[in-house]
Design a protein around this nucleic acid. Structure first.
Lengths: 137, 137
DNA sequence: TCTTGACTTAGACAACGTCCAATGTAGGAT
DNA sequence: ATCCTACATTGGACGTTGTCTAAGTCAAGA
């Protein structure tokens, strides 16, 4: 994810310890954390980091298109660092874990013009719900 | 929606003025209101109705499968009375209004077996996002 | 009509997120 | 290397959405 930091600096980002830590937390793992989870993990490496900064940084990363904001239920949003590959989500209805998946087909084409109500559609999100192997057992 | 009230009474629901008003508000329209919007509209007809009762009643309707809870962004959940016809949602990224839409094609079939990770998939939700004609103007 | 258990109420509380004024600092300018 | 300043961070107040509880109320069966 040092790529990410480079990219951001190229866009005029000021590189601070806080931002670096948030980027490091998001990096690497397949799980999608909530803002407060990111804050907790960031605090382990940089105890003084504030909640506001984590929210700010996450918001900036989303605005810059480096991270995707996912809200699968009505609860806390989760942040998905896999922003450069189009993908959808598979969610376990019981334990809530999320996996990235890649459906085939043109999702946008499935919506006929007369069903678009004059909207300028810019994104399609698909959530598959079901029980994961562990929860089904 | 008197059907609904009948159905509910058949299931042992106590029929109160508050519940009737909430059901009436949900009835009829294509828009999907937030809980607080439902409360505001209900208050016009029954000024003393409390927020807690609106939340309770909406939750009960969801549990009974008469209404679908939709949380398209991290904001307030919206309540969709069109629970008996399969459909997806078209959401304005700016003002948050929701329209029901009916995409063609088999949504489930779009997910290859090797992308299912052993999940028993039971539902597919699709959200189309874009700007509505009003917000695009 | 009476009774009772389910329903409603107001308001406190909780989770998640935003905003602000005061303070600190990255990185270009000197 | 040091200074400057615009930008970043902080902590805490605040806002929104939703939940919970104790006390009062009422629908509907006996």
């Amino acid at each position: 994810m040092s790529d990410l930091l480079e990219r951001l600096r190229g866009r005029g980002w000021r590189l601070t310890a806080q931002r670096r830590v948030v980027a490091e937390v998001l990096d690497g793992d397949h799980v999608h954390y909530t803002a407060d989870e990111v804050h907790a993990l960031a605090t382990e490496r940089l105890p003084e980091i504030s909640r506001a900064t984590v929210y700010n940084t996450l918001g900036e990363l989303v605005t810059l298109g480096e991270v995707i904001e996912v809200s699968t239920d009505g609860r806390a949003k989760r942040y998905d660092p896999n922003a450069h590959h189009a993908h959808q989500h598979l969610v376990c209805a019981r334990c809530g874990t999320i996996r990235d998946v890649h459906p085939s087909g043109d999702l946008l084409a499935d919506l006929p013009a007369q069903e678009r109500y004059g909207f300028a559609i810019s994104a399609v999100e698909v959530t598959y719900r079901g029980l994961c192997p562990d929860c089904a057992a």
